[in-house]
Simulated assay, not measured.
Amino acid sequence: MQKKRILVAALNWGLGHAARCVPIIEELQRQHFEPIIASDGEALRLLHKEFPHLNYEKLPSYHIKYPENGAYFKWKLIMETPRILSAIEEEKKLTKKLVKKYNLFGIISDNRLGVRSKKLKRNVFITHQLNVLSGSTSFFSSFIHQKYIRKFDQCWIPDFEGSQNLSGKLGHLDKKQKNCQYIGPLSRFEKTATPIMYEYAVILSGPEPQRSILESILLKELKDASEKILFIRGVMSDEGFQCDNPNINMKNHLFGKALQEALNCSRVIISRSGYSTIMDLAALGKKAFFIPTPGQYEQEYLAEKFQDNGIAPYCDQNHFSLEQLQKVQNYKGLSDLGGSAGLRGCLAFFHSK
């Protein structure tokens, strides 16, 4: 009997959207669906490495890039809006072809606004941003995003619905939209009892040039560190990268169980405050030091939220120093908030007739 085919489409904006699709794809397979992977760039390469046996399709690229000066980030996105909208229209055209090519039963789109089909009754949108923070234009950007969300049959929010949650005002409205459902945080990792090998693990990700800018800052500030440090650059390259400090173990990338083991054996994680990273660190119960991407309101909000709640400190990347990491000992770290609404149960949506 032919398995029902579900298209899983992830936005290529850093690796976070692709990473949180990993447990979705795994659960689809456990429930005897056939996932079809769709994305572009490094997000597509990550998913293809995690699931080399699955069919995958390349989607149009949004070509999201950060300015070197974070203060211009919002205005750069506004200037690029026509190109992004054009990519969304191309997504719609390609999705029509994929529905026919694979005889799709349903779609799960992680922030791919154009990946849905009127011919299907099971179009799911995944986002933790019901409110899209953009400074003085937050009301407008949130209104537009919520309008897109209402076009999908369901919206899955990877968080808890109550006051004990990870996303704060990003994922919670004063009045819940009818098609929204909280499914609990998504993470591909599990906490294991692993001996600590590294005092710090640096996890880099996100679009250029900000990824490279932060990498340069961290390597400069950590060049004399005496602690053992694992430094994962977050680039899909096999070309070696040398570091003068013998205490720093450089890796371009790690995947699957290797990355899970690396994080479990590290005492403190240094990373951006992206939401997918936060979900992973909560699943692992880790202490963290956050460095939000300049100009990205979402990451700045989350970093401030967790510092104010006594969970993890942060600083902007231009003020980072080795001494800043001493603050971590005064914070309790992230932890699982106690159970999940259940990704497994949510997939019953695709079992229904």
Rank of each mutant, 00 (worst) to 15 (best):
K3G: 01
K4L: 15
I6W: 06
I6G: 03
A10R: 09
N12C: 10
L15Y: 10
G16A: 03
G16S: 05
H17W: 02
A19P: 08
P23D: 01
L28D: 03
L28F: 08
H32N: 10
S39W: 13
A43G: 15
K49A: 08
L54S: 01
N55V: 12
K58W: 12
L59K: 12
Y62Q: 02
G70E: 03
G70R: 06
P82K: 03
L85A: 09
E90I: 07
L94Q: 15
N103M: 13
L104T: 02
I108A: 03
D110H: 05
N111G: 07
Q129D: 01
L133T: 02
G135F: 11
F139Y: 06
F139S: 03
F140A: 06
H145N: 09
K151F: 12
F152S: 00
F160I: 10
G162Y: 09
N165T: 08
L166H: 02
L170K: 03
G171W: 04
G171P: 13
H172Y: 08
H172Q: 04
Q177I: 15
Q181C: 14
G184N: 03
G184T: 01
T194Y: 14
I196M: 05
M197L: 13
Y198T: 01
I203R: 02
G206W: 10
P207T: 00
P207A: 02
Q210G: 04
L214F: 12
L218H: 01
K220Y: 07
K220M: 06
P246H: 09
I248E: 04
I248H: 07
A258R: 12
A258P: 07
N264Q: 02
I269S: 01
A282T: 12
A282E: 07
G285C: 09
P294F: 04
G295K: 00
Y301K: 02
L302C: 06
L302V: 10
K305M: 06
G310T: 14
D316C: 12
L322K: 15
L322D: 04
V328T: 13
G333S: 03
S335Y: 11
G339H: 05
A341C: 13
R344H: 13
S352I: 10
K353L: 13
K353M: 10
